[in-house]
């Protein structure tokens, strides 16, 4: 058999692999879309066939209609929740990374404070939130504090892990070359911690949204009274179930958006060198 003939031979196994890859590519989007449509249709039919009143279970169409009709109100609330979420995430990043750096720079500080960071993390925020609302006058600050409490820990623990995960030979090399503490942090530990930090950020993004919503619930109608969670509570009291669903939809969409944004950020920052962002070659 000549070489040119050889190069056109694609065996059964290769074909099977190609088929599997095609299925993977299409299925990743098509399958969830099919499931979503099926559930929506089923939901709609269940409501219509059983004649369920909209104050018990609204159909998907009505939810969408409410979303559009109440858009002005809901959008304002979304902005309030989003603002608290993003501010909390920002403070969590600053606080988490700052504490992590402090911990790796001083073993003394780490030994003194790490246990309390864990205690803060494992105590449910719902149980701390009422106290926070008693002692903190500004509702905004209180909400922010609650969201931060939930969100900062994954960033702290991941970044600490990353800062301590530098290659020991590289650490030796830095020592041999007489690197200062600051140089080691700046050129070695921070870049090494970046993938870990970004992993923590993805978790913290979702958690800060949860923290913001939970805090709003606890603050209740006496709170600043305009976030999405407040809208859900308010709509619940008025038996405006379609609006509850519409607000819920917005919260879920926000969560997905935050996750997508942090994933994109992670990809952009790591694509050049980190294994997690590199597609298998060859």
């Amino acid at each position: 058999m000549s070489v040119s003939e050889m190069s056109h031979v694609i065996d059964q196994e290769e074909l099977a692999i190609a088929r599997a890859e095609r299925f993977e590519r299409i299925g990743k989007w098509a399958l969830p879309a099919i499931v979503l449509i099926a559930v929506l249709v089923l939901w709609d039919r269940v409501v219509v066939w059983n004649g369920i009143p909209h104050y018990i279970l609204p159909g998907p169409g009505l939810v969408l209609q409410t979303l559009i009709e109440d858009w002005a109100t809901l959008f304002d609330s979304l902005m309030v929740t989003l603002k608290i979420t993003l501010m909390a995430l920002g403070v969590a990043v600053v606080g988490g990374v700052g504490l992590a750096v402090l911990f790796t720079q001083s073993r003394f500080v780490e030994m003194s404070f790490y246990p309390f960071a864990v205690i803060l993390q494992v105590t449910p925020v719902v149980s701390i939130a009422p106290l926070i609302f008693i002692y903190v006058d500004s509702k905004l600050t209180a909400l922010l504090l609650c969201a931060w409490l939930v969100a900062f820990f994954p960033i702290l623990s991941n970044t600490t892990l990353g800062l301590n995960s530098t290659d020991h030979n590289l650490r030796d090399l830095y020592r041999i070359y007489g690197a200062t503490r600051w140089q080691r942090l700046r050129f070695l530990q921070l870049p090494a911690a970046l993938p870990y930090f970004l992993g923590g950020l993805r978790i913290a993004g979702g958690l800060s949204l949860i923290g913001a919503v939970v805090a709003e619930y606890v603050a209740g109608t006496g709170g600043i009274g305009s976030g999405l969670a407040f809208r859900i509570l308010e709509a619940g009291y008025r038996l405006n179930i379609p609006r509850m669903f519409a607000a819920l939809l917005l919260i879920a969409a926000t969560g997905v958006l935050i996750f997508a944004a942090t994933s994109l950020l992670s990809h952009l920052l790591l694509r050049k060198w980190h294994e997690s962002a590199i597609k298998k070659e060859g």
Partner: peptide, 26 residues
């Protein structure tokens, strides 16, 4: 100058940046 059994390069830096390191630390 030191060479270890592993290449011990910083994966986030280019080859030139890695070679620059001893100077950079000064």
């Amino acid at each position: 100058g030191v060479v270890f059994q592993e290449p011990t390069l910083m994966p986030w830096a280019t080859v030139a940046q890695n070679v620059w390191l001893p100077f950079r630390l000064r």
